[in-house]
Design a protein around this nucleic acid. Sequence first.
DNA 1: TAAATATATCAAGAAATGTTGTTATGTCAA
DNA 2: TTGACATAACAACATTTCTTGATATATTTA
Lengths: 106, 106
Amino acid sequence: MTVATHSRTDRAIELFHALSDETRLEIIELLRRGERCVCELTDSLDAAQSRLSFHLRVLKDAGIVRDRKDGRWVYYELDPEIFEETEALVSGMKPNALKRTEKCCA
Amino acid sequence: MTVATHSRTDRAIELFHALSDETRLEIIELLRRGERCVCELTDSLDAAQSRLSFHLRVLKDAGIVRDRKDGRWVYYELDPEIFEETEALVSGMKPNALKRTEKCCA
DNA sequence: TAAATATATCAAGAAATGTTGTTATGTCAA
DNA sequence: TTGACATAACAACATTTCTTGATATATTTA
């Protein structure tokens, strides 16, 4: 397992990218009510298993979900902290109070 | 100009996609201090003009920036409201209080 | 142990996205 | 009114991301 050294920007890219796909947003919506095994997600979303697996990995790499193995099933659930982190990233993008007033290229 | 009919999900995809690119995050960071013309952004980011233009359009289509033409310059600035909207989208993804407890696939 | 099930991973192709160079359009200044 | 500049848009290509089908691994059950 590799823990990459992320700049703030890299982290934002990873998170926002993970959130910018329809299948992944659907997975998140399903997981909002609690953990699910892959088989349930496959049923609910009517998606090929390998496709689900691909998207779950993107979500997991971004830290949005965690998995837990139990027998032959793997359960996924949301990591609630990730949304605080995401909100903080978004907050940090808001216009700065100290805006400049002079024009450029004048 | 076309105003597409967006589902909540489509809107999230559009916003998060616009935020998941390094060049675009750099543009946002520069615009936090106030509006800039394209020429200034081109200088600051050392990027080809057509490349900047491409990314500015993605940001504009997503509603993250607005532009204003003045003489032969075009100025871009952040739309502060977009960040409230984004935060609201993120909030809406948090785990639901009413989680189910029964296991699946048992 | 053999067969069935759940999941991950991989390879190949398809689709989407980003880059670069070029051209078109409008505006300003000489 | 010609030339230079600022920007947008486009076409061709490169890169990335997603999908599909196949195979591999672990676990359970018969």
